[in-house]
Design a protein around this nucleic acid. Structure first.
Lengths: 193, 193, 193, 193
DNA sequence: TATGAATGAGCATTCATTCAT
DNA sequence: TATGAATGAATGCTCATTCAT
């Protein structure tokens, strides 16, 4: 059984990496097979079509992203540490997100109802976890009680995407050169006088 | 000459709209020509390839997005009004951005050096304009003097992408139901105690 | 317009000949294209799929077969001459029939409702014409009045298929060596004492 | 040895039934194995290829058809009863014949020399038996002495194929509603005045 | 300049066959 | 002997691009 499992995950890993690198359309089934070290036909033993393989990969990656956030939420650490960990996680997984983003932004038939649902659910569950973390921040008296929590959750995700994305993709900055604490503090203290 | 110009822009409009709707690969040259009301061969009189047409469209759209921001920056209105206008503009143009995003996130040969450069330049120029606006905010004593301006610029873009994107794509909220002022105030006052 | 027409009929001719020679599955789309002297893609300008091309060919051939029978029925010649002409026509077109037979006998999805209907209609119309000819035979007092006309029509077709098919496919006999008159006389006089 | 024999015949039965139902190309080795209740690889222990299995099945079916005719020929019954039994047998086995017909009419590489030979031999042997029956008819003074026996044999087969095929495939008539005696009588008495 | 008929490279997918177990 | 996972040759079909008119 290990053999079968390992072959399926070899395909998923290969596909995941290729889709991320080149997107859905530019990735060819035999490239995936080659990368997985198997024959082209074998891919179809495990996935009925390119589309299905793609969906599987998306759903797995989305779930992995969520699970990391959940894990952070469950840690026995302070509110600020959790948000900083989220920032760091976002930075580390920027490329995965980027790969997923293409399919999310693709508006053709590419993005099936099934994937749309997965995106939505992932987004929802992730928001819930971040809201939970913010609640803890309120309990810790770090966060004001009367804020719009949904908005703050959105801001945490938004600034990490934009600020960290810019750092990574345009400025090619390394993790150790980013001041994650300052990122959060700015959100807490605000920019206004 | 007017004829030529109008035919070229008919192609660009058609292509722009199709690429936005269905993405690069799902849009067929055929469809573009039809939508532009011309023959398939004629497209090639104006653009040497699908890729080139796509790049042209991206560059034009990116520039349009920038010009809107520039226009807002040049208005004789307060700092807060400018940021709120930026938010509104982002909300209105979310679909254009979404269309562009697919190509930005696509990492294959699809995104040529030329587009990458255009993305980068647009991002840079837009940042500069927003930084300029923030400077005005500092002058108006709305914004603290010692903030990281680049970070704040990034946050303005990031929160609008995330928060407004969520409102539009997931919650299907209308413009009049969004409290843009509150969005900015949260950024100014911060969420912390 | 002649050009277009001639290209479509070139495809039909090529396809017809190939399907007849090798059957549906053994005939490849690019063989058809090659035989028609055109590119593979061009076939798809005229027919949306192999299946559609096949159906078109079947329907055309079925109709041609019927039209020949109709033509014979309309001639100003005697009953016996008409039946003999039918025999001769059957003999000459044995290969066309044979080609069609494969698809008729194929019981998979190959034979669409559309073709089934065409087969049925052709069969029906052909029977009607033969019954009309037999009626003339009755008027000419060649045929008994009280026979089962439907049965006789069936016999005319059946004996030509079997007897002539045997002559052609197994014994490789030429047309001039077949006694068509005797064929009909046997049917008229009967084999019994 | 019984085990082996039973497995081989399970394959043949499954294959026979599938080929008849869906034709050669639409029948997958997979399906045959499944229907036979064995593994896909096992089929290849008994038959070296799909083509060989198909040929085997054809030959067996052809032989079965012949044996039934032979059995009828050997019965101690009258000429007329024998011919009527042949008609009935043909009617009952129309579907088997139809299945075989597809491969007979297919003219590609599908129909190997080996099958062609089998078809020919079957046809020849069947004709011989029918001729033998007709001889008995002559002896019984039911049939004229000077007829073309080969032609009459051909007619018996031809009318049963056509008339009974029409009854079965187009009109969906049941056996009890067919007047087999009248069929023969028409052949004996003739349709002419 | 404008066209669209013609093209064929390119790709997803199927399935008969093999072979390690 | 029996198996079914693995394979890749083979094929229908698409669509960007060309070019004769």
């Amino acid at each position: 059984m290990e053999v079968k499992t390992s072959k399926k995950s070899a395909i998923i890993n290969a596909a995941s990496s290729m889709f991320q690198q080149k997107g859905y359309h530019e990735t060819k089934m035999n490239e995936i097979a080659q990368k997985a070290g198997i024959g082209k036909g074998t891919v179809y033993e495990y996935f009925s079509s390119k589309q299905e393989l793609f969906e599987e990969v998306c759903i797995i990656k989305l779930n992995e992203l969520y699970l990391s956030i959940e894990e952070i939420a469950n840690k026995k650490i302070s509110f600020k540490s959790k948000v900083i960990e989220i920032f760091k996680h976002k930075f580390k997984n920027m490329n995965v997100q980027k790969g997923l983003a293409e399919s999310f932004f693709a508006q053709g038939d590419l993005i099936s109802v099934r994937i749309k649902k997965a995106f939505f659910e992932n987004m929802y569950k992730t928001y819930m976890k971040i809201i939970y973390i913010i609640q803890e921040g309120i309990d810790e008296r770090i966060i004001k009680e009367d804020i719009n929590i949904e908005m703050m959750a959105s801001y945490i995700i938004g600034v990490s995407n934009q600020y960290l994305g810019m750092k990574l993709f345009y400025l090619d900055v390394k993790e150790e050169d980013i001041n994650f604490e300052k990122m959060l503090d700015s959100l807490l203290e605000g920019f206004g006088n």
